[in-house]
Design a protein around this nucleic acid. Structure first.
Lengths: 126, 126
DNA sequence: GTTGTAGTTTCCTCCTAGGTTAATTATCCA
DNA sequence: TGGATAATTAACCTAGGAGGAAACTACAAC
């Protein structure tokens, strides 16, 4: 068993926990534009550098970003796997929300048809 | 401004925080099969009822489930909006992971071709 | 009424997350 | 060598999450 053994469920915990913070999501959004250093990533935030450094560490541990070295710099790059994992997880439920939205849509259509024939003017429900 | 005004970012915090727990994700998976009461949802877990009740409250506040009343029962039903929101959020990054996976794929192909120097010109793996 | 079932709330403990400041490491450059 | 820049680590604080136990509310059935 490797040192980095991790249950699927535990990794999903870490994945979603990493996303449950707007600063970290903003960092990911920034990295979607291009790779960036810690200072570049920190610039938009009213927050000390160590705080950003910790956020980056969380994202790195969760596997959302990978880092290299260039002199004093530690540039960050987006890694695709965790993002794809989130999309795949949500997609499990696609049939459900498609169904529910369809049903809602049908209800609205029925209501619209019911309202239509006898609706001369201004008889809008709600 | 409504009483339930909430910034998009704050709601995403709540959305992802709700998902960052395997018990809660399991509850969602169970509800994908059918609606269920609190006791039914609690059955698979080695955990006291109050703990489950709290998890349900978290999911409800986050908007993942809606509840009705039926005598003493408070059946839970999956609500589609937050799940769709997660899928939409992840989908923002689809181009990125498509690109990266493609590039990785190309690199592997080049390496494969380099490893087969005897392959005639124009031969393509895959 | 009383009793039983379903679920929630309160209070407690333990632990972690997010932020601060100050100190420390690593690397370049003059 | 010594100083500037980039980033991390350490020490600390506060707030909140996850769980348990016990008490409580709500409804039904007898």
């Amino acid at each position: 068993m490797t040192a980095t053994a991790m249950l699927e469920e535990d990794r999903l915990d870490e994945t979603f926990a990493a996303l449950a913070n707007s600063t970290r999501r903003a960092i990911l959004a920034r990295l979607a534009q291009s790779d960036a250093t810690v200072n570049e990533l920190a610039a938009p935030f009213a927050m000390q550098l160590p705080a950003i450094s910790k956020h980056i560490k969380v994202l790195e541990r969760a596997g959302f970003i990978v880092r290299s070295r260039n002199a004093q710099f530690r540039p960050c790059r987006l890694a695709p796997d965790r993002l794809a994992e989130v999309a795949t997880w949500a997609d499990q439920y696609r049939s459900i929300w498609d169904d529910r939205f369809d049903r809602l849509d049908q209800q609205l259509s029925r209501r619209r048809r019911a309202a239509q024939p006898t609706a001369p003017k201004g008889t809008n429900d709600r």
